[in-house]
C-alpha cells in the first residue's frame, strides 16, 4: 500500500518539493550568481561611488544624495530579487520543458507559485545581503540605520516584486518565449518612474502622475524618510500598502486569466 499525504500536509510537501527543485537548479547553475550577487555588487559600487563623488564635490547638502542612492540601491534589490527569482523560476520550467509534466500532477497552481517564491527568498537574502554588506564595508552605510521601518518597506517591495513576476509569468504563458525578456527588463521601466533614488518631484512633469500611481514610489519615499530620521511616514506607507494590495489582486487575476487562455488554446504544446 502506497502511503500518501492528504490535505494541508500534501500541499506543504508539494511546496517544499518545488522549492527544493529550484534549489538544485540554483546550486548547479553558477551563471545565476550574476543575478543574485554580481549585478547587485555592480549596482552598489556604481551608485555608491556616484553618491560619494557628488557629496565630495557639493558638500553637506549633497551628502543626502549619497544616502538616497545607497538606500535606493539596497531597497531596489528587494523588489528586483523578489521579481527575478519568481519569474525566472517559472522560465526554468519552460526551458527544461517541464510545464506539461508539472500540469499532470495533483499540484495546484498556488502551490507551485509559493514553492518558487519560497526558494526565491533564499536568493533575495543572498542578493540583498550582498548589496547591504558592500554598502556597509565600502561606504559605511548600514541599512539597519532605517530601524524597524525597514520591515514594512521591505515587505511592500517584496510583495510588489512578486506581483510584477506574476504578471510576467502570465505574459510568458500567453506569448511564449517572446515575452521572456520582460523577466529582466520590466523592472528597469519601473525603476526610474518609482523615484528609486530621488523624490518623484524630480521626474519630468508628464511622468510624475505615473510615478505617483506606483506603490514602489511610496515605498521608496518611506525608505528615504526613515533614512533621514523623519517621523513615521504613515501616508507613504499607507498609499504603498493599498497600491501593493491592488497590484497583487490585479496580477493574480491576470495570471488566472492567462492560465485559462493557456489551457483553452492548447499552448502547452509549445513546451512538449
Amino acid at each position: 500500500m502506497t502511503e500518501v499525504y492528504t490535505g494541508a500536509a500534501a500541499s506543504f510537501w508539494r511546496v517544499m518539493a518545488v522549492a527544493r527543485r529550484h534549489g538544485y537548479v540554483f546550486q548547479r547553475s553558477p551563471h545565476r550568481l550574476f543575478d543574485v550577487v554580481v549585478w547587485p555588487a555592480v549596482d552598489v559600487v556604481l551608485f555608491g561611488s556616484i553618491g560619494v563623488f557628488a557629496a565630495g564635490r557639493a558638500g553637506t547638502a549633497a551628502s543626502q544624495v549619497a544616502l538616497y542612492l545607497l538606500v535606493g540601491v539596497v531597497l531596489w534589490h528587494v523588489v528586483y530579487q523578489a521579481q527575478i527569482a519568481l519569474a525566472t523560476g517559472f522560465l526554468e520550467e519552460t526551458w527544461s520543458r517541464s510545464v506539461m509534466s508539472l500540469m499532470v500532477t495533483p499540484m495546484r497552481e498556488w502551490e507551485y507559485v509559493v514553492g518558487v517564491a519560497l526558494f526565491g527568498m533564499v536568493k533575495l537574502v543572498l542578493g540583498v545581503g550582498a548589496v547591504a554588506l558592500i554598502a556597509w564595508f565600502a561606504y559605511a552605510f548600514s541599512i539597519t540605520s532605517l530601524g524597524l521601518g525597514l520591515l514594512p518597506v521591505a515587505a511592500l517591495l517584496l510583495a510588489t516584486g512578486w506581483a510584477i513576476a506574476l504578471f510576467v509569468i502570465g505574459l510568458v504563458l500567453r506569448f511564449g518565449a517572446g515575452a521572456e525578456a520582460l523577466a529582466w527588463g520590466i523592472l528597469f521601466v519601473v525603476m526610474p518612474l518609482s523615484g528609486t533614488f530621488y523624490p518623484v518631484s524630480a521626474l519630468p512633469g508628464i511622468l510624475r502622475p505615473i510615478g505617483e500611481a506606483l506603490p514602489t514610489t511610496h515605498a521608496f519615499a518611506a525608505g528615504r524618510a526613515f533614512a533621514r530620521g523623519a517621523p513615521m511616514p504613515w501616508h507613504e506607507l499607507g498609499v504603498a500598502a493599498v497600491g501593493t494590495a491592488v497590484l497583487l489582486v490585479v496580477a493574480l487575476a491576470y495570471l488566472g486569466w492567462m492560465l485559462r487562455v493557456f489551457r483553452a488554446r492548447g499552448l502547452v504544446t509549445r513546451y512538449s
Binding site: T2, E3, V4, Y5, T6, A10, W13, R14, M16, A17, V18, R20, R21, Y24, V25, R28, S29, S96, R97, S98, M100, S101, L102, V104, T105, P106, M107, S272
Partner: peptide, 29 residues
C-alpha cells in the same frame, strides 16, 4: 503520465527528479 518526447531537467539527478514527482503525488516515502 509519461511521454517519450518529454526531457528530464538538466540540472537534477534522477533520484532528485523522481523524489520531486513523488512528493508532488503526495508520497510519504
Amino acid at each position: 503520465f509519461g511521454a517519450g518526447y518529454l526531457p528530464l531537467p538538466d540540472r537534477m539527478r534522477v533520484i532528485e527528479y523522481l523524489r520531486m514527482y513523488g512528493r508532488l503525488a503526495g508520497l510519504r516515502r
